[in-house]
């Protein structure tokens, strides 16, 4: 029953590759954006500390 579902009438490879690729690419975009945001925040914190240091 389950094997039949995954075999998709013999087209399992094509169907699951399509859905898998789509999911992985979207996940990669989300993870990349999260990484980018973290890098940005760290950089801004550094700029902030630098400015605070020059004020005193």
């Amino acid at each position: 029953m389950i094997a039949e579902f995954f075999s998709m009438g013999g087209f399992g490879f094509y169907i699951w590759t399509s859905f898998g690729l789509t999911f992985l690419l979207m996940l990669a975009e989300v993870l990349y954006l999260r990484q980018q945001r973290r890098t940005n925040l760290k950089r801004i914190q550094r700029i902030r500390k630098m400015n605070a240091g020059s004020d005193s």
Partner: peptide, 23 residues
């Protein structure tokens, strides 16, 4: 929207509003 926020932070990182917000 996540990306546009990243772009805003990147381009305006030297502005006071970003500094105040992140701080």
């Amino acid at each position: 929207f996540v990306r546009v926020r990243n772009i805003i932070l990147e381009r305006e990182r030297n502005s006071t509003w970003v500094s105040r917000l992140i701080g």
